[in-house]
Design a binder for these strands. Structure first.
Lengths: 348, 348
DNA sequence: TGACAAAATTGGAACGATCCAATTAAGTAC
DNA sequence: GTACTTAATTGGATCGTTCCAATTTTGTCA
């Protein structure tokens, strides 16, 4: 249709003012006369003018109002919720976001970061792919762009962080299982050389230590953080000379796998074996049996991460900050504590 | 650190060439001598130069390599998968994406579209919020920016579309229920004045007509497309003078609700009543009983939508195109056909 | 060596906004 | 009506890149 786009100069000409005046109107400056403002605004609407942010950002002073978000697995509803939380805050703050899914690939993550940098993002929130190194974030940090790492850690990187309280969550969960009478409680699933894993195991260990119970290494059975990993872990656990009667699982996906594995072995989760997950994904509530799990409110975390980043962007000076997001245990059926009608009907 | 960013002029000076030569190197032009290219590239690395895409896009000819994606509900794993599929294709094609969640709000959707326009997106993929009108997309379309609508329709908008084959999927599902011996098959859940609803009901109707069966309007019971809606719909269905013995549900969420409602009425889904869903969300496989449903492969749809958009961007001339994505029936337990160990153990 | 083609390089003018300093218009007080 | 303050408006110059036309360098052949 329009062979060339409408610019400030076009409206200036049409409205009979200078481009400077139009610019002032655009940024709602109080310097411009009411009548002039009205006339310019009318012309803007009439000609269908579209503000060109790219051009505006060219001047060195301006910061771009674009922020980058990279998550390692958007198909995981935990991260999808996280992203939605960020989206909310960024939206309302007038920012627009490049959201990308690294799919756990550091190469892809590197590409995306480079691309975002070229587009001049004002900040980055990153849920790092496994194996992310401080060097991957170095150039961003060096050029003064605030970075917030969420969920997972990037060792050695001087960036702000926002993690859930893995330690306290795991501790609470295990305390609950102890209170239910369990004396041999395993930790199942998850990849062992990650910070998250270490923290959750630490919580498990401390809860047992509190009441003078044993925390043998044989009861920590790592695997992948997935359903399949959960199945594998519980299979190995049941072969132990002193098999556990309950388990804290690395995350909900693994916990579902543990339930599958238990059934395959003729045991009913919740009745014959206590299962507790971590994350509180949406399916946890509606699964059968409903999963007892540590809720981390991913959407809330996303919101907080976004607020933290915005604070840093506005502050100018980037001062890395570490925030720990609290969690709470949600007791449902799978630990054996619940006794809702639903559970009764199925397991009685 | 660096008080001002490094520009082509800086590298030109440092490498002892002109900015034009640097520009040619940046776009890998064959016009530049090998030795010069090497020297320039070395300088680029040395000074830590970052390409400024905003500045490059300023020249009118350039198209921005940014595309917009808006989904109506990212917390729904169907749409998350859809987004991931798009991300894959866009990534590999060297595009970067503004991804936003309208959360079913047309106001928010409008804002996001405006913002994306100001940032100069090359195209938009939209899974429209309910109530989206052609007028909302008019300015984009008028300025020649390709738009692809996915999943849902925008009536009257001259944009490309990519929908799943609701008609064929519903037809297949009902045929399957007929083959299982059902003679009174209802259509439960969903909001009636939507295209998707109409198409699925049409498939239901035709499948019944094929074998000369009745398709009374009383057997079509709309409600919301949610778990609660499913409960409400089955309650009403069971009160009919000739209650159905099976149902095709609007989507999986409604189907789960129907299962809940059946149990509340003392009937076991899969044994006493055949239930079929639509979408094949992740939970469908692991629910009890596992849900028979029509699988639409959201990730594949996302990929196809992205490819369609890229094709339109490259073609220059925008010629709206309508693509229908095929679906397939996944038979599990809830329809009464399956008889896996799992089902037996729980419902025997 | 000179003539000419091909290869490589280059300055300057865009692109569309902002911002500064300078100018003009409008008020106010005497 | 003049002097002065305040309110509005306005030309450049600028941001970092691309692109065009023009220029310089190199290569080839008689």
């Amino acid at each position: 249709m329009n062979k060339s786009r409408v610019t400030v100069i076009d409206i200036a000409r049409a409205a009979g003012v200078s481009k400077s005046t139009v610019s002032l109107v655009l940024q709602a400056s109080p310097l411009v006369n009411e009548a002039t403002r009205a006339k310019v605004n009318a012309t803007i609407r009439e000609l269908g003018y579209v503000y060109n942010r790219g051009a505006a950002n060219l001047r060195q002073s301006a910061s771009s109002r674009i922020i980058g978000i990279i998550v390692n697995d958007l198909t995981n509803s935990f991260f999808a919720e996280l992203a939605v939380g960020m989206d909310m805050v960024m939206q309302s703050a007038g920012y627009v976001q490049f959201l990308s899914n690294s799919a756990e690939s550091i190469d892809r993550q590197r590409e995306v970061i480079a691309s975002m940098r070229e587009h001049g993002i004002a900040g980055l929130i990153l849920s790092p792919a496994r194996g992310t190194e401080a060097a991957d974030l170095k150039p961003l940090v060096a050029s003064g762009i605030p970075v917030v790492a969420v969920v997972r850690n990037v060792v050695g990187a001087k960036v702000s962080t926002l993690f859930s309280d893995n330690y306290a969550g795991a501790k609470d969960a295990v305390r609950h299982l102890i209170a239910l009478g369990h004396r041999r409680i395993a930790f199942l699933g998850g990849i062992s050389n990650t910070t998250v894993f270490t923290e959750r195991v630490q919580g498990w260990r401390e809860a047992l230590a509190e009441v003078g119970m044993d925390a043998p290494d044989t009861h920590v059975i790592p695997s992948t953080a997935s359903r399949a990993g959960g199945v594998a872990a519980i299979e190995r656990a049941l072969l132990l000379p002193d098999p556990p009667t309950a388990a804290l699982c690395f995350n909900d996906a693994a916990a579902f796998g543990v339930c599958d594995g238990l059934r395959a072995a003729g045991k009913e989760p919740g009745r014959d074996f206590g299962v507790v997950g971590f994350d509180d994904v949406i399916e946890a509530e509606t699964a059968v049996p409903a999963l007892t799990t540590v809720s981390v409110d991913p959407q809330g975390m996303g919101r907080r991460a976004a607020q933290l980043l915005l604070k840093q962007i506005n502050a100018g000076r980037v001062e890395p900050e570490a925030i720990v997001s609290s969690v709470r245990l949600v007791v449902r059926q799978s630990c054996g504590a619940g006794s809702s009608d639903k559970t009764r009907r199925i397991f009685a």
